[in-house]
Design a protein around this nucleic acid. Structure first.
Lengths: 247, 247
DNA sequence: GACGTGCATTGATTTCGATCAACCCTTTGG
DNA sequence: CCAAAGGGTTGATCGAAATCAATGCACGTC
């Protein structure tokens, strides 16, 4: 289950998520405390990392890769409730049992902290709790935005929203405003997109084809999407046109 | 806009939400600090308390009444993203602009804290931040449960889930396990339920009628619902049958 | 090269919930 | 007393997305 990761991770100080994860606000000495209770785990694409109902003896941060958080009903209907990207947090202090499935979408490496010691640090090291609060509130905002999408948007708006969100996140990681064409890789299969958007995979496929037919997106293979004109795509999302800051 | 409240609220120590709100973990001295920056506001049923886009100079706790958090698209489609009951928190430390509409469903009284001083307390008084984190994580869980409902449940399952959730909450406030018949008041209009469930008000009405016709619920007026047999209702929600602790 | 498998696309048909519309009941107020 | 308004119910019809089903790749693998 535990895979060997190519890059040997060890020093928090040169960790790729040092300034965005739970540890973001920590000083050097606080980092040392975290360092002493951490260990890495890796999973390969497609693996279930955690099953809903499992006992959890750790919390963790995604270091590299993409994972999903999902809920499944007895008859198999499933709904993704979160997309976990590098720096996102897994688990909840004070909780014994995992409420959701966590699945690796790509190869994933996580930085784990043993739960008890982490909970103690939470009390003694305010910077960790403060950052965790900030992250929880951000996730809450994201969840609420997704509730609007799930409850009220059409299939076309859902697809456009998903592509736009991924594009915006990518753009902001790479460089500021690539106003022209931009190209993004969908980190999810059609089925995973369907589970995220509350659709069937057939509807996802049809709507992507429709957007392509209309020239709003172009496809390069199945996974790579080229967006000739982001504002045009944004118009299809149903969101306020003034969609956020320009830079 | 500010209404006169019948009961004169003042002492935190005999506040009805003293042990469930942000202040739940505070010691007496910490409570005094909060007391010094607090003030009450009241709103009457139907009033919009906060508009999305408004500048917010306070955060608050609901003391009495029910309010809703909602998002609206340009064309009027709206989705409720939260139901605010006594002890629930409004606003976000560090945020200037309200992202959601907050609407009083019944007459509502809130306990407000000026934002700047509250943010300072958050740094100096760890008990507040700890409780806020706990509450944020609870809301995140609720939001994710709702995502499953919005994305994957049928209209009938949505209605049954809503009634069951209200019934369970009521039951737990009043007395432990009223195993037999129980009776709950829906705090929402049909339209508000529709906005919560991602349905139209006609569908809400039809599904309630259907549950009534099948004897799963009984109606007393429009708002009061009698549940002869909670487990039978629970079966209609689509959730795991072992639905949580028996007590 | 043939075969099987996983992922994706496309078509035909059905269905659930939306939409359009009429009507009921209760409250409020001139 | 009647009119108007707000909330709710019910019926007829429509349409978007689900469902059922076939087909099309791009792979590994034997």
């Amino acid at each position: 289950m535990v895979q060997h990761s190519e890059i040997e991770l060890s020093e928090c100080s040169d960790c790729p998520i040092r300034h965005r994860a739970v540890c973001a606000r920590c000083e050097e000495d606080e980092l040392d405390l975290l360092e002493s209770i951490k260990y890495y785990r890796s999973y390969s694409a497609g693996q279930t990392m955690i099953w809903a109902g499992d006992r959890m003896d750790f919390v963790a941060s995604v270091v590299v890769g993409v994972a999903t958080l999902s809920q499944t009903m007895e008859d198999g209907r499933t709904q993704m409730v979160g997309l976990l990207l590098p720096s996102d947090f897994i688990g909840r202090p004070g909780r014994e049992i995992a409420p959701y499935n966590v699945t690796a979408v790509s190869d994933v490496t996580v930085c784990c902290f043993r739960k008890r010691p982490f909970e103690n640090l939470l009390v003694t090291t305010p910077h960790i709790g403060q950052r965790l609060l900030e992250m929880a509130l951000d996730e809450l905002d994201a969840a609420r935005e997704w509730m609007l999408l799930l409850g009220r948007k059409t299939a076309r708006e859902k697809i456009a929203s998903l592509i736009a969100i991924i594009a915006r996140r990518d753009a902001e990681l790479k460089d500021a405003l690539p106003e022209g064409r931009l190209s993004v890789t969908l980190p999810l299969t059609r089925e995973a997109m369907a589970d995220y958007l509350g659709l069937t995979l057939e509807t996802v496929s049809r709507q992507i084809s429709a957007l392509k037919r209309e020239g709003i997106i172009e496809l390069e293979g199945k996974r790579r999407v080229i967006i000739p004109n982001l504002p045009v795509l944004m118009e299809q999302t149903g969101d306020d046109s003034d969609g956020g800051p320009i830079v």
